[in-house]
Design a protein around this nucleic acid. Structure first.
Lengths: 196, 196, 196, 196
DNA sequence: GATGAATGAGATTTCATTCAT
DNA sequence: AATGAATGAAATCTCATTCAT
C-alpha cells in the first residue's frame, strides 16, 4: 500500500533522527546526518516535516502521547496507589532498556527550548493523570489528607527523570538489575512518604 | 583597583549572560546579545572568556562551587538528616526566589549537554556530599539499613530539580509561600521514605 | 480526439501559468503552483514542456506570434498611418481589458530578460512591421522625411508599453474608458509628432 | 574618518552589485559574486544590508532620488516645456553613456518584482514632477488644453525607457551620436504632439 | 582595555527535475 | 497519461571569532 510506504518512510526518518540526536545532540545534528542515517537524500526530510525542529517536536509529542495513554490505562486499573506507581515507574524507567536512544533525546532536549515545552502540551497530560491517581488514593484513604497531589506528582516524576538522567550521563549504573532496583527504591520512598 | 575593575567587567558580562540565556536559551543567544545587555562591544567578551561556551561553563561552574560549599557546610553541621535535607532543599529551592534567571539557565542547560556535564566536575561534588549525608545518617540509625544512598541522593535531588523545572515552565505556582510548602512536602516525603 | 485532449491539457497548463505568473511573478512561482492551479500533479507539466522556463517562453512566443500576425494584417491594409497606429494601439492596449493577467506577465517578464528576448525572435517581428508601416507612410509623404523610422517605432511602442505598465502597477486608472482615451492620446501625440 | 570608511564600503558594495547585476541579472547573481567583485567576504554584505533584495532596492531608490532631484531642478527652471523635456531626455538618456551598468539594472529589474514597484515610492516623484511641468506649460498656453498631463508624462517617459531598453538589448545602436539623435527625435515628436 | 568591521565555515531550506509505478 | 516520492544542486543568511586601530 502506498500509504504504508509513506508511513514507513516517515517512521524511518524519525527513527534515524532519534539515533542521530542521541549520538550528537539536537543542535549538533545536521539534517544531512539524519537523512544519511535513514539512507535517503536530505531533501526528502522536507516532504515529511516542515523543519528540523518539527522532527524533534514530533518525536517528543508522539512519545508523550504513548506515555499518556499508558498512564491513563494504569490510572483506570483502580489498583492501590503503590501498585500504580510501581507500574508507572517500571514502564518509564524500563524504557531505558528498550529505547535508550529515545530516552537520551528526551532527557537531553525536552525542556531545553522554551518553545518545545510550551508547544508540546501532551506533557501535561501525564502529570494530570499522575495527580488524579494520587487524589483518588487520597480519597480512598491510602494517602495522607494533607498531601498536595500536584506537587507530589512532580516530585515522583522528577525522581524518575533524575534517575534516567543519571543513567544517560553514566553517573549511575543502568543495567537490567539496576532498573528493577531503582523501581523498588523510588516506589518505596514515595510510598512511605505519601502513606496515610 | 584595576583588578577590581576587571573583576567587575567580568561579573557584568556573566550577569548579562545569565539574563540573556534565561530569556532566549543558550543556543538562541548571540554573543552580541550578551554584550548589548552588558552595554559593551561584543569583541570585549573575548578579553574575558575564550568563547561563548566558556561563558556558560563559567556560570555553571561558579554556581555549583557555591552550592557544593554550602552543601558541605550543611553536611559538617552534624544535624539530623531531616534537618540537613530541609536546609539543603530550602537553599536550593530558595534560590528560585533570589535568582530566578540563574535557575532558569541551570535547569535548561545543565545536566543535558554531555560536554557540560563532563567538564563541570563540581556537579558531582554535590551528589557526593548528599550521598555522604545519607550514609552517615544510616550509620547513626536514622535511615533504613537497606537504603541505597547514592540512588536516594539522586532521587532527592531529582525531586527538587523537577520542582524547579515546574516553576521555570510555569506549570506550578512559584511564589514565596509555594517555596516553603515545597520544601516541607519534599522533606516530609523523603524523610518518611528513608526513615528507619 | 486524443490530440485535442492533449492540446487542452497543454492550454490548461499555459493558462494556469499565466494566472500564477501574474500573481507572483515568474521567479516566485513554483512549478507546483502552476500544476495546482491547473488541477494536475506537477510531474505532468514535464510531459508538455521541457522546463519551467519553456513555459514562460511558450506563453511569450505564442502571444507575440498572434500580435505579429495582427500587426502585419494592419500593415497590409494600406490605410493611412494614423489609422494604422490607432488600430495597433487599440489592439495592444485593448488586450489589457481582455487579458490582464497575460499583460501583467508580458510587462513584467519580457523585454527584460536577455535570454528571453534573444530566444523569442518574434518580438522583433512586431517592431519590424511597425517600422515598415512608418517607412511606407514616409514614402507616401504622410511623415516627415527626416524621421528615423526605427527609432520612431520604438518610441511609439514604448509609449504603449509604459501605459500598460502604469496600469499593471496601478499607477493609472485602467478602466474601459481610460483605454479608449489612452488610444486617442497616444495616437494624437505620435501622429502630430510624425506628421509631415 | 571612520564614518567615511563605512560609507565607502557601502558604496563599494553597491557599485559592485550594479556591475554584477548588470552582467548576470539580479536573480542569477549570487551574494558571493557581489562580495567577490567588491573584494570582501560575502558575510560583510550583511553588515550593510539586510538581504540581497535590500541591495537592489537601495540601488533603485537612491538612483530615483537623484533623478527626482534633477527633475525638480529642471521643473523649477521655468523654461519652455520643450526645453525642459529636452533637458530631461538628455539627462535620462545620457546616463546610458555615463552609467550603462546602472541603466541595465534599472531597465531589467525595475517593475519586475511586484514588491519593488510598490516599495520604491520615489519612482512616483519623477512622474509627478513631469506631470506638473506639462500642466504648467498647459496653463502658459504652450500645450493643447485637452491634453491629459498625467498620461502624457507616462507616454513621454515610456518612450525614453523603451529607447534605453533597445540599447540595453542591443536592438538599437547606442553610441554618443545616437543618444543625441534620440533626444532630438523624442523631443520633436513629443513637442509636436503636445503643442497647442 | 575597548571597539566593531571583517571573515568564512557551515547549516537549513527550496524547488526544478527525474522516474518508477 | 498521470502521479508524487525522491533527488541533490544551489543559495541565502547567521554568527562565533579575530584583529587592526
Amino acid at each position: 500500500m502506498v500509504s504504508d510506504r509513506v508511513a514507513d518512510r516517515r517512521r524511518e526518518l524519525l527513527d534515524a533522527a532519534i539515533v542521530v540526536f542521541a549520538r550528537k545532540g539536537f543542535h549538533a545534528s545536521r539534517v544531512g546526518d539524519i537523512a544519511e542515517e535513514a539512507g535517503v537524500a536530505h531533501g526528502l526530510l522536507y516532504h515529511y516535516f516542515r523543519s528540523k525542529d518539527e522532527v524533534l517536536e514530533t518525536i517528543v509529542r508522539e512519545t508523550w502521547q504513548l506515555l499518556q495513554a499508558d498512564t491513563e490505562r494504569i490510572e483506570a486499573s483502580g489498583q492501590p496507589l503503590d501498585e500504580q506507581l510501581r507500574r508507572f515507574a517500571r514502564m518509564y524507567l524500563g524504557s531505558w532498556l528498550s529505547s535508550p536512544d529515545l530516552i537520551r533525546v528526551l532527557v537531553r532536549e525536552v525542556g531545553r527550548s522554551p518553545q518545545l515545552g510550551a508547544r508540546v502540551g501532551e506533557i501535561r497530560g501525564v502529570f494530570v493523570a499522575l495527580r488524579r491517581m494520587i487524589e483518588a488514593a487520597r480519597e480512598r484513604g491510602e494517602v495522607r489528607a494533607d498531601c498536595n497531589a500536584q506537587l507530589a506528582a512532580w516530585i515522583f516524576y522528577g525522581a524518575l527523570e533524575e534517575i534516567l538522567t543519571a543513567w544517560v550521563l553514566g553517573q549511575l549504573a543502568g543495567g537490567e538489575r539496576d532498573v528493577e532496583r531503582a523501581v523498588k527504591t523510588v516506589v518505596d520512598v514515595a510510598g512511605a512518604g505519601l502513606a496515610a
